[in-house]
């Protein structure tokens, strides 16, 4: 059952990722990206990482992609204005992506022989367990993250502000 779910999620994920690249209108790309992120959240659920699945939906689909959508609508970029790249460049891009895939796959040869412990700690991905680890071992990076967010917020406001001269 979960194997079937894995393959369905994988196919949908790859399909929507391809549609992000190949769809003509930017708004369609954003919607396909949201769909792809939901599929990735489904993968997290299959892996028993419930906290990350929920955070993934809230942060990515709820915040980041809404920001993208808002920018596209704010700048009125939905019309397909980009002059088309020459076909040679498109073919070159696809070939480069394919070559990278080839290199990655050839590096992963032999991974199917890695032994996997069939016992699974189903409680590991829960909020309680992750929270204990986050606030005990990773306290300093967590606090640094807030400084990163503060600086990103200041930078975004400063860049987005209209210059008055």
């Amino acid at each position: 059952m979960s194997v079937i779910a894995f393959y369905i999620l994988t196919v949908l994920c790859i399909f929507s990722a391809l549609m992000v690249v190949f769809s003509k209108k930017p708004v369609h790309s954003v919607l396909y990206t949201i769909f792809c992120f939901f599929n990735i959240a489904g993968h997290f659920l299959l892996l028993n990482a419930q906290f990350l699945a929920i955070v993934h939906i809230i942060v990515y689909a709820g915040a980041i992609m809404v920001l993208f959508l808002f920018t596209i609508m704010f700048l009125n970029l939905n019309a397909e204005v980009e002059p088309h790249k020459s076909n040679l460049l498109k073919v070159a891009a696809v070939v480069c992506g394919g070559l990278l895939l080839l290199i990655l796959v050839s590096c992963l040869k032999g991974a199917e022989n890695i032994p996997v412990n069939p016992m699974l700690d189903t409680q590991m991905g829960m909020v309680k367990n992750l929270g204990m680890v986050l606030y005990n071992e990773y306290m300093l990076p967590f606090e640094m993250l807030s400084i990163l967010f503060l600086s990103a917020m200041v930078g975004a406001v400063l860049l987005g502000k209209k210059e008055t001269k």
């Binding site: 990722a17 690249v21 980009e82 498109k90 070159a92 891009a93 696809v94 480069c96 990655l104």
Partner: peptide, 14 residues
């Protein structure tokens, strides 16, 4: 690997 390659291809493609 497939998702990462699609991402790289998209950066080069669009």
């Amino acid at each position: 690997a497939i998702l990462f390659s699609i991402g790289v291809m998209g950066v080069l493609f669009r």
